[in-house]
């Protein structure tokens, strides 16, 4: 197998596309450095080159398929390991067929895989519009921790800003240590890396937890028990961040 490795940046990815055409090599995979590969694989390290990236970008923008660059950046938010390979295969279709819009050619594997990859990220965004759980902190602002499969904090932020216009909040992706902060006026995304984040909840918070748990239990119809359906809609992996599911 031929594997391209790059630095994980958007320009790095676009450079991979450039080199593939320039060197006439079709990579089987495109990966972040640090991913394990086997001895028989042929590794090609692609150093990021902004000018080469720029040329690919121009080419993409000229192609008939719309929104490719926007969709590429979205696909990089995916938590799936093969996302760069899937994105590469799609871009190749876009460039090779630059006179047609390939975005809905679902019988084409590369197009279908790419559209599925985006859809899974959007589905998770939609789910977390519901599953985010805020608690009021001792300082008065509202804090939520969650652990999404994809890097969606930035995509969730506009929804909550519109909803809680006058309420300061923080949404914390504890898996990646990424935070979205909003103070009632401005917002920003922070990549906290290794910094430890500690919050103290207000004393009233327990009252609201109890009320919510009571509501959750009372609105259920025990005689209609259907755990399978519940888990289908609300997979177990999310439970650790949902107070109604704490044991």
């Amino acid at each position: 197998m031929i594997i391209f490795t790059f630095d994980g940046t958007t320009n790095g990815f676009l450079t991979c596309v450039f080199e593939s055409y320039y060197k006439k090599i079709l990579p089987d995979q495109i990966v972040f450095p640090g991913v394990q590969y086997s001895l028989v694989d042929e590794i090609v390290e692609i150093p990021t080159d902004d000018r080469k990236a720029e040329r690919v970008l121009l080419c993409i923008k000229k192609a008939r398929t719309p929104f490719v660059f926007r969709d590429l950046k979205l696909s990089f938010k995916s938590g799936e390991e093969n996302k760069f390979t899937v994105a590469f295969n799609y871009v190749k279709q876009v460039i090779d067929n630059k006179d047609i819009d390939v975005s809905t050619d679902f019988a084409n594997r590369a197009v279908l895989d790419f559209s599925d990859c985006l859809r899974r990220t959007f589905n998770e965004v939609h789910r977390f519009k519901g599953f985010i759980r805020f608690s009021q902190t001792a300082n008065g602002f509202f804090y939520a921790h969650y652990s999404p499969d994809n890097d969606i904090t930035e995509l969730l932020l506009p929804h909550f800003k519109a909803r809680y216009k006058n309420q300061a909040f923080a949404i914390h992706d504890v898996k990646r240590n990424v935070l979205a902060l909003y103070d009632g006026k401005q917002s920003k995304i922070i990549y906290a890396d290794d910094a430890a984040i500690t919050v103290y909840f207000s004393e009233e918070e327990k009252t609201f937890r109890d009320l919510w748990k009571t509501y959750y239990d009372s609105v259920n119809i025990p005689e209609r028990k259907n755990r399978k359906q519940m888990i289908g809609h609300m997979p177990r992996k999310y439970w650790k961040d949902l107070p109604e599911k704490y044991q």
């Binding site: 519901g130 609105v219 025990p222 755990r227 399978k228 809609h233 609300m234």
Partner: peptide, 14 residues
């Protein structure tokens, strides 16, 4: 589009 916030043991959405 509507948003579901939780699901009860009977599989219904809250």
């Amino acid at each position: 589009e509507g948003i579901c916030h939780s699901f009860t043991q009977d599989g219904r959405c809250i």
